[in-house]
Write a protein that binds this DNA or RNA. Structure first.
Lengths: 170, 170
DNA sequence: TTATTTAAGTTAACATGTTAATTAATAAAG
DNA sequence: CTTTATTAATTAACATGTTAACTTAAATAA
């Protein structure tokens, strides 16, 4: 994981809505910007999950793929890349990696030879059984430390943020 | 930017705190997990900033570096990598890239020849002047769409989340 | 003063993010 | 039925994320 967050500053006024007195525009303080806050939060959260993934030789992205197939097996690569928020070239390489390790397998779609569907293998299911309890424990830890109520509120705000940004594009 | 979020589901109960009735542990639904929520939020936010960065041939990471030097010039590479949440090998390559484009310049530290300090060039400052107003407008847009109060609350929750996760390590 | 440890930054190697191009298959249009 | 357009997935190429190793310089210990 990357370096810890060492440059914490006092919470200050955010996102000025007008230009400053001298007439020049200004961005929020770099460390206070929304992208940086989201980056820090995600790195902190991921730092709790990555060690147990590494124990099984899996990257975060590979786990996302396995996790998504565990929830619904047999979807195609395009759909899987959407659900995992991975670009298709990235998904293509990840699928090859997991296939070579026999954690997932491909099947052609008889009705559309362009498409390939993906399934967890028995080994893939075993690795889920090994990792899932540790991830579950990590979630409980985060939930306890941070507070269940605050976590629900955060999730809701994150969803509202995504919706409010995306509705501009509709 | 990556594919849009097309698989929205109804907001459901999050982070079960106990094992389910059958006795097996369970993770939150994949799409509802905190890492995925944070990833989506950051991608949505970044999608508003990246086009104007690309107009000037800058990646998000390169902009972070320039942005950080604009706030405080003349810091060393190690300190800059901490502030930008970039690993040192990544920072090393980014610095080389920006240096070759004459947006930043290196200066040795006479008192410690291991260290190199970095400064924005005149061209670097010009590009900040071109990009900053667009980024500022993007912040105003996000703030309007989402709500200033909600944005402050979100920032506060993100900071609390980071603090609560990290205090376990102290 | 010398030896050892630590630090700053770079490089190698591999994984993933990203854009563009390509191939093969399917759908649509005429 | 033939031609054109679109789609699914892969590959190439380059940037960045990540870990390990390396080089050079400074700090610390003996």
């Amino acid at each position: 994981m990357s370096q810890s967050n060492q440059n914490k500053r006092q919470l200050s006024s955010l996102l000025p809505d007008t230009v400053n007195k001298s007439g020049s525009v200004q961005l929020p303080e770099f460390d206070r910007s929304l992208p940086m806050s989201l980056l820090r939060a995600r790195e902190a959260v991921m730092s709790k999950f990555i060690p147990s993934l590494k124990e099984h030789g899996l990257s975060a992205q590979q786990w996302r793929v396995i996790r998504s197939l565990e929830q619904e097996d047999g979807i195609d690569i395009s759909e899987l890349s959407k659900r995992c928020y991975l670009l298709k070239p990235s998904m293509s390489r990840i699928v090859q990696n997991l296939e070579s390790r026999e954690l997932i397998e491909r099947r052609n779609v008889a009705s559309d030879q362009r498409r390939t569907t993906l399934y967890l293998t028995q080994d893939g299911r075993e690795i889920v059984k090994l990792i899932a309890p540790k991830s579950e424990e990590r979630y409980r830890f985060i939930s306890r430390q941070f507070g269940n109520g605050k976590l629900e509120l955060l999730q809701e705000l994150l969803e509202d943020l995504v919706n409010s940004i995306n509705e501009d594009e509709q």
